[in-house]
Amino acid sequence: MSKRNTEKRIKAVEMHKQGFSRRHIAETLGVSPDSVKTWIAMYKNGQEDLLEENTKVRLYSQELKLKAVSAHLHDGRTLHDVTASFAISDPSVLKRWCREYRAAGIVSSSVRGRPRKHLDNPEEIIKELEMQVAVLKKALELQRRG
């Protein structure tokens, strides 16, 4: 989250405490009313840390994702309520999990990066290693040139 966004979140909570409407806060800060609603819910649930600047990507356990999806889809709780009570950074994250759950019956894991290849036979392993050697040779050659 950028410093500017953090400042907007804090300002939104301050304006809410002063009695301004969510719509007025959203228009003043140039953000969506849904964002303001989420930020206020986070604050009310004691999740001030979500209002602070955080450059780390949040990773959520599979268990938390399924509980949050279930709370929204099966228990009928709102996106904003579930987002705030489960300390999810944004309702769009929960929306994505719900979409995945509806489509496949599961929610993707938080494991990042490209999945490892599972090479079964020795010929595939040799071919993969030869390709890696060729790439490294080419990189070394380019490095020596310039």
Rank of each mutant, 00 (worst) to 15 (best):
M1G: 14
S2V: 12
K3R: 14
N5R: 13
T6F: 03
E7P: 15
K8L: 01
I10Y: 11
A12K: 01
A12V: 02
V13I: 04
E14N: 13
E14D: 09
E14S: 12
M15W: 10
M15T: 08
K17I: 13
Q18T: 14
G19Y: 05
G19R: 08
G19D: 12
S21A: 10
R22T: 12
R22K: 14
R23H: 14
H24M: 07
E27Q: 09
E27N: 07
E27D: 14
E27V: 00
G30V: 00
P33H: 05
D34H: 15
D34N: 15
S35M: 12
K37F: 11
T38H: 00
T38Q: 05
T38M: 05
A41V: 01
A41K: 04
A41T: 05
A41Y: 13
Y43S: 05
K44F: 04
G46H: 04
G46S: 08
Q47G: 14
Q47S: 15
Q47R: 15
L51A: 04
E52N: 12
E53K: 07
T55V: 14
K56R: 14
K56F: 12
R58M: 04
R58S: 07
Y60H: 04
S61M: 04
E63T: 07
E63M: 06
K65C: 10
K65F: 05
A68F: 03
V69P: 10
V69E: 06
S70E: 10
A71Y: 02
A71M: 02
H72W: 00
H74I: 06
D75W: 05
H80N: 15
D81A: 05
D81I: 00
A84C: 07
S85V: 08
F86H: 15
S89W: 13
D90Y: 04
D90W: 03
V93T: 12
V93P: 03
V93S: 03
L94N: 05
K95T: 03
K95L: 01
K95C: 00
W97H: 08
C98S: 10
Y101F: 14
A103L: 09
A103P: 09
A104I: 12
A104V: 15
I106M: 14
S108Y: 00
S108H: 01
S110N: 06
R112S: 04
R112C: 00
R112V: 00
G113A: 02
R114W: 00
P115K: 02
P115E: 00
R116A: 03
H118R: 06
L119W: 11
N121H: 05
N121E: 01
N121D: 02
N121T: 01
E123G: 07
E124F: 01
I125V: 11
I126Q: 12
I126Y: 15
L129V: 12
L129T: 13
E130L: 12
V133A: 08
V135E: 09
L136T: 07
L136W: 03
A139M: 06
A139H: 11
E141K: 07
R144N: 13
R144V: 11
R145C: 08
R145E: 15
G146K: 11
